[in-house]
């Protein structure tokens, strides 16, 4: 059970870490000042959440590693984040679409995790879900404003949705790691969250005048670590640059 729990906590921590890093790439470069501030604040929330999840992962593992060790000293094949969050930022609309798809799932997942029989998991989820409700409020609002905006913004949002939709299925794919933890009452069964997710996004996309892709084909391999996209390696070379150039550096 410890092995599965460690794996799962890496998934939660790596999702936050990789997405937080992606969002931080916008810092100073967003279309307008308010969005720059919002996106950087969201990145900060994710980095804070990473410290909690990877901190707990390190404790569960019991090998003397810290959250920082897990974040900075692992290479691509040891990362357990969803393929969705490692996708490049693209244009601003693509970043917002990626965020909305993640947020819509994240809120439901965290709500389920608040009822975990694992005390620390439940405590972290109760803390984090409050921040994440603000995330989805903003990403949903922007998807609607850009989707139902000008012909140019509409087209960009439709392209973003078509491109990112194949990464949605992985969020609801339950593998043996998750099965074990579901049976112990430690995590919710994400496949049961799909109906609520679909209801949320269908309503938003209808208002945003966006068309849902007809295929539910899903790319898999991120959270299992079996097949990350080529983008994660490039991201890590930036994020882990300091520790790679100066191993063990602290300040």
């Amino acid at each position: 059970m410890t092995t599965e729990l460690f794996e799962y906590l890496l998934r939660l921590g790596d999702n936050s870490l990789v997405l937080g890093h992606r969002l931080s790439e916008w810092c100073g470069k967003s279309p307008i000042l308010e969005e720059d501030i919002a996106i950087s604040n969201t990145a900060l929330d994710f980095i804070g959440q990473t410290q909690l999840w990877l901190g707990l992962a390190a404790t569960v593992e019991g090998q003397g590693r810290s959250a920082d060790d897990l974040a900075m000293l692992r290479d691509v094949w040891d990362f357990r984040n969803l393929l969705l969050v490692e996708q490049p930022n693209g244009n601003f609309g693509e970043t917002i679409m990626r965020q909305y798809l993640f947020d819509a799932w994240h809120v439901l997942l965290l709500d389920g995790l608040t009822r975990s029989h694992h005390q620390e998991i439940s405590a972290i989820a109760q803390k984090v879900v409050k921040e994440v409700r603000y995330h989805i409020e903003r990403s949903r609002d922007l998807v609607i404003r850009l989707g139902d905006g000008t012909p140019v913004s509409h087209e960009k949002m439709q392209i973003a949705l078509d491109r990112l939709w194949p990464y949605v299925g992985e969020m609801f794919d339950v593998d043996p790691v998750e099965h074990t933890l579901i049976e112990q009452g430690l995590i919710p069964d994400t496949s049961t969250l799909r109906a609520a997710f679909d209801a949320e996004v269908l309503k938003t996309f209808a208002t945003a005048t966006l068309t849902l892709p007809s295929s539910n084909f899903a790319h898999l391999g991120g959270k299992s670590g079996k097949r990350h996209s080529e983008h994660l390696g490039h991201l890590l070379t930036q994020m882990q640059w300091l520790q790679r150039a100066y191993p063990g550096a602290t300040w």
């Binding site: 308010e34 969005e35 501030i37 919002a38 604040n41 969201t42 900060l44 929330d45 603000y134 903003r138």
Partner: peptide
């Protein structure tokens, strides 16, 4: 103006 502000706890 925005649900996010100069610190995580503030909106503009």
């Amino acid at each position: 103006i925005s649900q996010y502000g100069s610190t995580p706890c503030k909106a503009q």
